[in-house]
Design a protein around this nucleic acid. Structure first.
Lengths: 139, 139
DNA sequence: AATAAATAGGTGTAAATTACAGATAAAGGT
DNA sequence: ACCTTTATCTGTAATTTACACCTATTTATT
């Protein structure tokens, strides 16, 4: 769980170190994962990374989980069956599934905006009349 | 040190009022708009709304613009030609265009994650093999 | 046996961002 | 005279994220 971006901005709070995409997909992905399998935090965190959400902060991650529980979107119970430190195993609730649906709607809107963005963005490059920009982004 | 954080959060800052999509598309969209036409703030703000980014905070919006200028991603000059209060007309710089490209890459990654999210999300609804779930919610 | 590393779950708080509430100024409508 | 629209901008509360650090148990390495 590295993600060491030592970008020390002395003063002035620059616009942004790099075009950093919004990262609050954690909650919806978490809920979606819990809809498939019950799991404990550490496990979920690894799945988030596999999903593409590298750079999830461990501390905040567990806080999110506890907050979701407080809001009754998930429930947890301690699992002491296996060896090692006891694990808090989470399950999604009905309310949690509804919340996930809200998220899905919202993210759908966002997806449409992204599409509009890329349509505009690409429109600026299509002429391509022997422009030797040499920036061959192959997405 | 300003104690601007009322530490007494008995109430506990609920997970999120509603599935709110990340909203920091403002910067890339702004730069993209400026790549097409030079414009002043108020105008840009309206275009952002048309784009789908309703609920842009006016105060923060102008601050972002000034910060982008400080970072030399845009430049501005006062336009006093027309009547009314003078307008600060913005143009994108070379550095700004490069920054936009970085954003585009980053947002492309995000788009892929969103796609993965929706693939997973939909996978939970398609099977419908006479499962008496009968939850046919078509938002 | 001691040490390290992986697993598992956290706390504290500085820094950054966003939300909310105005101020200011010129022009046009009623 | 007052209200609304256009236009730019400041102050700061509230919230979120980033970074640093802590505890505990088991397994692997020296």
């Amino acid at each position: 769980m590295a993600s060491r971006r030592s970008n020390s901005k002395e003063n002035g709070t620059a616009t942004e170190p790099i075009g950093s995409a919004p990262k609050n997909l954690i909650i919806p992905v978490l809920l979606l994962l819990l809809k498939e399998w019950n799991a404990h935090g550490y496990e979920l965190m690894q799945k988030l990374v596999q999903f593409g959400l590298h750079s999830v902060d461990q501390g905040n991650f567990y806080r999110i989980l506890r907050q979701l529980e407080k809001d009754e979107f998930v429930t947890s119970r301690w699992d002491t069956s296996s060896s090692g430190r006891p694990k808090r195993v989470y399950s999604i609730t009905q309310a949690g599934e509804q919340y996930l649906d809200l998220w899905a709607n919202s993210l759908g809107e966002y997806q449409k905006m992204l599409d509009r963005f890329f349509n505009m963005y690409r429109r600026m490059f299509i002429p391509a009349t022997q422009n030797e920009k040499s920036e061959q982004s192959h997405n």
